[in-house]
Simulated scan of single mutants.
Amino acid sequence: MTWLKDVIGTEKAIIAMCHLRPLPGDPYYDEKKGMDYVVEMARKDLMALQNGGVDAVMFSNEFSMPYLTKVKPETVAAMARVIGELMHDIKVPFGVNVLWDAKLSLDLAAATGAKFVREIFTGVYASDFGLWDTDVGETVRHQHRIGAKNVKLLFNIVPEAAKYLADRDIEEIAKSTVFNNRPDALCVSGLTAGASTDSQILKKVKDAVPNVVVLANTGVKLNNLEEQLSIADGAVVGTAFKYEGKFENHVDQNRVEEFMRKVRAFRSLAVK
């Protein structure tokens, strides 16, 4: 049994993304509609996800494009306001992801009571956002300083829109990440949000670290969820839950319900 059962309530967990609209300081923030609009759109998506039956939710500033690797204070402040206003509506375990800043993700988790964070904690990358460096030792020390030691750390080891500077295979990365950093989970991604995770890569990672939770981090859809969940311990799902399966759209509760029905059927067969 993994920690997923204790924290989220089930194995083969589905963590649904609640993508926040652009926030103050973001290039595409709508000043006329303001933060009230951001909050209400987040509430709309949250309710559709929960009513559709997801196991957990992760709030992220997905529309803060183009992303920063050192996020500004106004972003995390705005995210804290959104989650604070939604607190009475949140009925499932939740996590947070401040793209792409590991320490601020932990700050937000500590402030809101989030159970987990997903981030790029390790590695050095050539990315669309420039040279992308990390400092996992300082990040984990920060986690303990702020009283967030019980927050689960989901390490994305295949960052979107980025590539390791060193020539290392994925099994080597998985093994050394686990040995050096004791992550709670490894997330395996496709190129961008909504892009399918390569099942062969997913299997290589799971085989390399069989005792660690491995999550399919992008691109799990109705037509591949059984294949992906037969390998991974769970999945992070965002785009597949949206109207017409398009990243920029809002959550479609009907799509969520259909997806989760298939997940529950898969789980029941897996148990047998």
Rank of each mutant, 00 (worst) to 15 (best):
residue 145 R to I: 02
residue 146 I to H: 00
residue 147 G to T: 02
residue 147 G to A: 06
residue 148 A to I: 07
residue 148 A to W: 00
residue 149 K to W: 10
residue 149 K to L: 13
residue 149 K to E: 14
residue 150 N to K: 13
residue 151 V to D: 03
residue 152 K to M: 14
residue 152 K to E: 12
residue 153 L to I: 10
residue 153 L to H: 03
residue 154 L to V: 15
residue 154 L to A: 11
residue 154 L to I: 15
residue 155 F to H: 08
residue 157 I to N: 03
residue 157 I to F: 03
residue 159 P to F: 04
residue 159 P to L: 06
residue 159 P to I: 14
residue 161 A to N: 07
residue 162 A to S: 08
residue 162 A to I: 07
residue 162 A to D: 05
residue 162 A to V: 13
residue 164 Y to R: 10
residue 164 Y to A: 07
residue 167 D to L: 01
residue 167 D to R: 06
residue 167 D to C: 02
residue 167 D to W: 03
residue 168 R to G: 12
residue 168 R to M: 14
residue 169 D to F: 10
residue 169 D to R: 14
residue 169 D to E: 13
residue 170 I to M: 11
residue 170 I to G: 05
residue 171 E to S: 15
residue 173 I to G: 08
residue 173 I to Y: 07
residue 173 I to H: 08
residue 174 A to N: 05
residue 174 A to H: 02
residue 175 K to V: 05
residue 178 V to N: 05
residue 178 V to W: 03
residue 180 N to F: 05
residue 180 N to Q: 10
residue 180 N to W: 06
residue 181 N to L: 14
residue 182 R to D: 14
residue 183 P to Y: 02
residue 184 D to Y: 03
residue 184 D to F: 09
residue 188 V to P: 14
residue 189 S to W: 00
residue 190 G to M: 00
residue 190 G to C: 03
residue 190 G to I: 00
residue 190 G to W: 01
residue 190 G to H: 00
residue 191 L to F: 09
residue 191 L to Y: 14
residue 192 T to A: 09
residue 193 A to I: 05
residue 193 A to L: 08
residue 195 A to W: 02
residue 195 A to N: 09
residue 196 S to F: 06
residue 197 T to L: 09
residue 198 D to H: 01
residue 198 D to W: 01
residue 198 D to R: 00
residue 200 Q to E: 13
residue 200 Q to P: 05
residue 201 I to M: 10
residue 203 K to P: 09
residue 203 K to L: 15
residue 203 K to I: 07
residue 203 K to R: 07
residue 205 V to R: 00
residue 205 V to M: 01
residue 205 V to E: 03
